[in-house]
């Protein structure tokens, strides 16, 4: 840790020196904001053109430009949320790694807990019926009954064989 803070101090001192003493600059230490700051935000965004690749690791030229855009916005003083909102405005919800909770997307957050509870209920019923041999202690309730006319028709056809 001491090592790092020493380096940070050194970097700070150097940058202060660089500002105070304008000379022919050597190689730029780190752009401001740093790559890590940019990537921290880019990681939460998905490249609008490539499939399912987080923006921080996407190797295409377009994505490099989008990362530069994040850097510009950060340099202009935008915060993380503003930048994310900007990307959503420009390219739609798909740039977010987790769908925003609105409209139809509610389902994406509702279905898992419902499935969990439904499964738990089936499990509970299966285990509860253990003392009662007449009840069927398996998870057959997971299969819907053949209310469908199509299914019963298929059934008929198979029966005819």
């Amino acid at each position: 840790m001491r090592n790092i803070s020493a380096k940070v101090l050194l970097a700070l001192a150097l940058s202060v020196a660089a500002v105070l003493l304008p000379s022919e600059t050597v190689f730029a230490q780190q752009p401001t904001p740093s790559d890590d700051q940019v990537n921290a935000i880019a990681k939460q965004l998905y490249c609008p053109v490539c499939e399912n690749i987080p923006l921080d690791v996407c190797p295409t030229q377009a994505c490099a430009q989008w990362r530069d855009l994040i850097r510009e916005k950060l340099a202009a003083g935008w915060n993380e949320q503003q930048i994310k909102d900007y990307f959503v405005d420009q390219y739609g919800d798909r740039v977010l790694g987790t769908p925003p909770v609105r409209g139809l997307n509610w389902l994406a957050y509702l279905i898992p807990p419902v499935a969990i509870l439904a499964g738990a209920y089936v499990l509970f019923m299966a285990l509860r019926s253990r003392q009662n041999p007449t009840e069927q202690p398996d998870s057959t309730m997971l299969v819907p009954p053949p209310a469908d006319e199509y299914v019963s028709r298929l059934e008929e056809e198979v029966k005819k064989r």
């Binding site: 939460q44 399912n52 987080p54 919800d93 790694g97 409209g103 139809l104 898992p112």
Partner: peptide, 18 residues
Amino acid sequence: DVFTGQKVTFGPEWYERI
């Protein structure tokens, strides 16, 4: 507002959280 036709992305965060 409900059926926006917008594609959404499910990243690792969504899967892993659940």
